[in-house]
């Protein structure tokens, strides 16, 4: 059964009991919760995912719960337990989904050490992946979302998951976190896009989540070969500017953007080397989303397949 097919009572019972187990591609997460607002939010954003056996192996278990004690009454909060421990500050009671999503990002970034994890959006077309590594606030999520809404398959908004064995990229597919102006930008860019509730006044401003397309969820176990690395930056002073980035420099920037490169070296070094050697690398500054999407499509078409180089 898929999450969209489950009624609220079933989802509530799963979350309050054995947990709602979801498979994101490279990792499985078991979600537990006593927050009554959560089931419809999960149904909207994770509708395309199958409900896995909660007794099966999961990489992480998270539990979102209402804070106890005085916090039940005075400025109520929600808190997140990751594998039984609290590692993040609680959030206001009316922002359960942002805490769950950020908490899962944190949990996966700190626990999924069987892959090299780069902080990057990833999309693919015809099996060839585009990495969009960038710092928060650079427009990475907006561009990743836009590409996913224009024919690219979304692998992740947050993680490039690199396999050590062959340097291929695995999906870690979850909703795309859109912030502030980006929410309306994407709503206008693709009026049919499924965007969940808006949460104003988070520490990153207003946040809403774009649900991944059902076909992307269905394909989440298909890997993709790295072919293009684009360091994006939203810049209202330019329409579109593209500059090549030397590979050694791209390597350094990707390593800095990694969640676990340092603890994985030398395996991390080898895996990142494979990604960079197989890719052409650019820096892209943009303000026009349509032009940026078209440009990335053209760059991907131009990038020679790995087999055609050396």
């Amino acid at each position: 059964m898929r999450v969209a097919e489950a009624d609220r009572a079933f989802l509530h019972a799963q979350l309050a009991g054995p947990g709602l187990a979801l498979d994101f591609g490279a990792a499985r997460v078991r979600i537990r919760s006593d927050v009554p607002e959560l089931p419809p939010m999960l149904r909207a954003l994770y509708g395309g995912y199958a409900i896995e056996d909660p007794a099966g192996l999961c990489d992480v278990t998270v539990k979102l719960r209402r804070a106890r004690g005085l916090r039940r009454w005075v400025r109520p909060q929600v808190e997140l337990l990751i594998d039984g421990g609290i590692e993040l500050e609680p959030f206001p009671r009316d922002t359960p989904l942002p805490l769950l999503e950020w908490g899962m990002n944190y949990a996966l970034a700190t626990r999924l050490c069987c892959y090299l994890l780069l902080h990057s959006g990833v999309v693919e077309r015809h099996g060839r992946a585009v990495l969009l590594p960038a710092a928060p606030g650079s427009g990475k999520s907006t561009l990743t979302a836009a590409l996913a809404l224009r024919g690219f398959r979304l692998l992740s908004d947050e993680f490039a998951v690199v396999r050590f064995s062959d340097g291929q990229l695995q999906a870690l597919l979850r909703p795309v976190a859109l912030k502030n102006e980006s929410i309306d930008v994407i709503a206008r860019f693709a009026p049919g896009a499924v965007i969940g509730p808006r949460f104003p006044k988070t520490h990153k401003g207003t946040v809403a989540h774009l649900a991944p397309a059902a076909e992307h969820v269905a394909a989440r176990h298909a890997p993709a070969a790295p072919a293009l690395v684009v360091f994006p930056r939203f810049d209202p002073s330019v329409g579109l500017e593209i500059e090549p980035v030397p590979k050694a420099r791209a390597f350094a920037r990707l390593a800095v953007n990694s969640f676990n490169y340092e603890i994985l070296s030398p395996d991390g070094f080898d895996a990142l080397g494979r990604v960079v050697q197989a890719s052409t690398c650019y820096q892209l500054r943009y303000s026009d989303l349509e032009r940026a999407v078209d440009a990335i499509g053209a760059l991907l078409d131009e990038a020679a397949p790995a087999s055609a180089r050396h």
Partner: peptide
């Protein structure tokens, strides 16, 4: 040591310090 040769520049990994150098 491991070397990734990218033409004009290379990246070298030092297995003792786990540092990479351009």
């Amino acid at each position: 040591i491991r070397v990734l040769d990218f033409g004009d520049e290379s990246v070298v990994f030092n297995p003792l310090s786990w540092d990479a150098h351009l």
